[in-house]
Each structure stands twice: as C-alpha cells, then as structure tokens.
Amino acid sequence: MNRFDYARPASVAEAVQAGAGEQVRFLAGGTNLIDLMKENVDRPTTVIDINRLPLNAIEELDGGGLRLGALVPNAETAWDARVEQRYPLLSSAILAGASPQLRNAATNGGNLNQRTRCYYFYDVATPCNKREPGSGCGAIGGVNRIHAILGASDQCIATHPSDMCVALAVLDATVQVTGPEGDRAIPIADYHRLPGDEPWRDNTLKPGELVTGIDLPAEDFTQTYTYLKLRDRLSYAFALVSIAVAMRVEDGTIAEARVALGGVAHKPWRSTEAEKLLKGQHPSPQAFGTFADALLAGAVGQGENDFKIPLARKGIVRALKQAAEATPQSQTDKRVA
C-alpha cells in the first residue's frame, strides 16, 4: 500500500472541503478501497475517513419511504426491521452478497461505489482502460467468463458487482449526494453508467461529490418479489447472473412487473419498455419468455461468457415465476423453488 495523508473530518461540509483533489479518496467501510490499495490499483495521496460523519441512520421519509444513511453497514440495513418488512427484496439481495464479516463493514454508500472485480482491472501488469485509460482491454479476447453480455463497449466489458444495487434499480431508489456545488438527487437508473468511451467512469458522480444516503420510495412489493442469484458457489461469490423482480398481481393478471439483472452489464440492467410486455398478462412461461427475450435483446457473448445469455433467459423466467407465486428465493436454503 502506498503512503498517504489521513484526515478525519467531523462534518459533511468539512469532508466535502477536504475531498477536493484528484487523488483524494473517501474511506468508509474500506472493504473494497483498502483491497484496491493493497493491489496498487488505487494509490490515493489523501484518504478522508468519513466514518464519523452523521450519515449512519435509517430514517422515515414523508410519504412512507425510507432513507438509508450512506454509512449504515449493509448487514444493519438488511436486518433493519423496517427494511425487512417493507423492502424484503432489498434485504434478500444484500444477504445474497459477500460474507457476514464484509456486510458488517461495507456501507450502503460504499456498495454503490464499489469497483468492478474484472481480473484485468485488478492486475496492474495487464492493460485496462478503466484503470489506465488508453492502455487497452485485456478481457476482450481474454479470460472473460465473468464479463458483460449487455451494454459493453469496445473499450470495456466489465460488470458492476453489486447485488444491493440490482434491488435498488427495481425499487426506483434515489441516490442523495452532496458536493462542492451543493446537494442533488440522482435516480438509481442514472447513477451507474455504461462504459462507452469513458470506461474509467463507473457512475455519474462529479469530482468531490459524496453519497449521503439512498432514498426508497413507498412501495408494496412484500410478497410477490424475488432475488435469484446464480453463481459458481452457493455462497460468498459474485453473481454470474442475478435477477431482481418486484411484481403486483391483481385478479390473476400482472398489474406491474419490474425486473433488473446483475452480473451482466456495467450497471444493473433494466428496461421499462420491455416491462410493458408483462403488464396485463397472465403469469405463464410463454409471457415470461417473451419478456426475457426483450430484456436480453442485443446481448452479445465474448466467448467464455456466452453461457450467460441462455442462463439469464432461464433465470429471468424462473425468477418471474417465483415472484408471481409469492415464493421468493431463500438466501439460506439454496434450493431454487
């Protein structure tokens, strides 16, 4: 790990002031940043320890939603009684990720901002346009079993590794940020971005901006939902493909269905256009399959990850069935219902 200056601001305003500068990093739980620093992928000159900032509460919002403080640990969020009761999809997705120890340290803001686990991004001996702009992409034509099938560019095929964010995409969350130019709110769909020709930008945060919280609107997806995560091991592994579903079924037909995919793109993958195909349908393998084809339109394999396209299609159909039948995937008993 490189040497750096360390500061521990006492207020958000001080943190923002201290956060100006190119090689300055905010440190929260540290589960990703410290690892990246050990690998020399990130070499900040200044580390701003934000752990003492008052962003560590879960609060009620007017209108029935919840604000998840940026510094609340993932485990505390998943096991918060209000989250468990009102947003069980979010609890399930968080508990599908990482390990208990990591979830105790990792924060909600840090989960949003974690970097890809692309092997080439992590290996400083190889080219990577995300780590070193212009150096090339080792994954294209290389070892790419875990890489993107949707929304990739000719410069980067990395995926966003979060489970939590896939649920947030379905729940239409809003990311609250503050920065040198003041506060702003970013819809989750606009927070992460596709790599395009600027693959070093994971998200739409501006320089020096700090995530302060995540707002969940009032929703009623407490029965007909699921988070289905498909991976090489049953626990403690990143998703090859994951599927978050939230659905409303009225009189035997689908009144609303929202679906987001993890592990397949540079951001949680969702299409509100494709979701219109499910509205008014009776839950059926045919309707689910038609939707899956629409959501996966344009999917391209890179060789080793070609299997993800049929895996995602089957996973979408299975997850929609789980949600429609109100039998969400257990994150403990790993049998897929």
């Binding site: 540290g30 589960t31 410290i34 320890d49 208990p100 105790n104 340290a105």
Partner: peptide
C-alpha cells in the same frame, strides 16, 4: 462485538 475482516480495516479508523 461485530465480526469483521481485520485485514481490510485501517487501525486508525
């Protein structure tokens, strides 16, 4: 009282 990976925590924090 919470379990944590001590390898990923800076002691000063």
């Amino acid at each position: 009282e919470r379990r944590i990976n001590s390898c990923l925590k800076l002691a000063v924090t």
